[in-house]
Simulated scan of single mutants.
Amino acid sequence: MYDLAKDGDLDRIINTIYDEGGIVAAECHGPVPLIYTKRPNVESFIGGKKVTGYPDVWESEGLLDIYPFSLEQEMKKISNYDLGDF
């Protein structure tokens, strides 16, 4: 999942689907690429949007120490991150 975080090809695919009226969705750790995806105007793809993702409290002990970043913490920086009913 983290190997796709900054994948230019995936960014283009995400933006194309979105611009053509498609739905861009992900679950669990799937939102990782959305963190760094930029719109053509260089704004964040998820900036200002309400998003959810796998919360830090659900990560197995020690995993946050070896992940390159926390999905939850990065999403909180640029979006309206919400744990929802977790």
Rank of each mutant, 00 (worst) to 15 (best):
E72R: 00
P33F: 05
P55Q: 10
E74Y: 02
Y81A: 00
V32K: 00
E20A: 11
Y36G: 02
C28E: 07
S44T: 11
C28Q: 05
M75H: 07
G47P: 05
M75I: 08
Y36A: 06
W58R: 09
G21T: 08
P40G: 04
F45Q: 03
V24R: 08
R39P: 03
F86R: 06
S44N: 11
S70Y: 03
E59R: 01
D85G: 05
G30V: 09
G53I: 04
T37K: 06
N41Y: 13
P40T: 07
V24Y: 10
I66A: 09
G21I: 13
D7N: 15
Y36P: 00
G53Y: 02
S60Q: 10
L71N: 01
K49C: 06
I78G: 01
G8Q: 15
M75R: 05
I23Y: 12
G84W: 03
S60A: 14
D65F: 08
V42W: 03
G47M: 05
P40L: 06
L83C: 03
I17W: 11
A5E: 15
R12F: 12
G30Y: 13
E74T: 08
C28K: 05
P33I: 06
L71T: 01
P33D: 08
E27L: 09
I46C: 06
D56V: 01
K50M: 04
T16M: 10
M1G: 13
G53D: 04
I14N: 11
K6Y: 13
I78A: 01
L64P: 06
P33A: 11
L63D: 10
E20P: 01
D3M: 15
P55Y: 10
E20F: 04
C28P: 05
D56Y: 00
I78V: 14
P31S: 06
E59T: 07
E72C: 00
Q73W: 08
Y36Q: 02
L63A: 08
G84E: 02
K76Y: 01
L71P: 00
D11V: 08
K6T: 14
I23M: 12
I66M: 07
P68H: 11
D65Y: 03
V24T: 07
S79D: 07
K38Q: 14
D56T: 01
P31D: 03
G53R: 02
L10V: 15
F69W: 04
A26R: 03
P40Q: 04
Y67G: 04
I13G: 02
A25K: 02
I17S: 12
K38S: 08
L71I: 02
